[in-house]
Amino acid sequence: MKYQVSIFNDLTEFLNEIKDRTGYDLKECYQCGKCTAGCSTCFAMDKTPNQIIRMIQLGMRKEVLESKTIWLCASCETCTTRCPREIDVAKVMNTLRLIAQSCPEEVKISSEVSDVPLMSKIFLWTVKYTGRLYDFGLIALYNNLSGNFFKDMMKGPLMFKKGKLSILPHKVKNIKAIKRIFKRAEELSE
């Protein structure tokens, strides 16, 4: 695989950004590859977890943030558990997702993985407006917004019959308080 190092003049800029946000200094990684060896989803990734860390060491910010890998990490925490340098690799991956989402002008998320953040956003909308996960709304919205209109259509009636899916949401009583939590969390994170 050929990689082009994008920032020759300041290799530490991206490393520092990650250190500031996660508390982990990725210079400590000596590339043993244990994170990749245990990774649950690396069969589907375009770059392995240790390659992502190496690319951070080389300052390849754009390439890392546009990788499919960061969206295919299932947060299973196996890498975090086994890292001999005690780096919370899953937290690094999560932070990379947060950074990638915060600069949409700079970072293009591949269409092969863009449904992952879409799903999270829809999940959170249902929580914001009902206080709890609203499965029916989640799937209806996802199918419409992703263009997979008939996805899992046959599962609905099956779940409905078993009393596992309701058309209407189970709302909390104090929805206003939940909406304020979302609003304040957004404001205070800026």
Binding site: R97, S120, K121, V127, V172, I178, I181, A185, E186, S189
Partner: peptide
């Protein structure tokens, strides 16, 4: 009484403060 969603993975993938606040409630 009136418990709310913990935010699951969707919250920590989107906003860390929200991911702590939903369970904290």
């Amino acid at each position: 009484e009136d418990w709310n969603c913990c935010g699951a993975a969707a919250a920590h993938m989107t906003n860390e403060l929200l991911a702590d606040s939903l369970p904290a409630k």
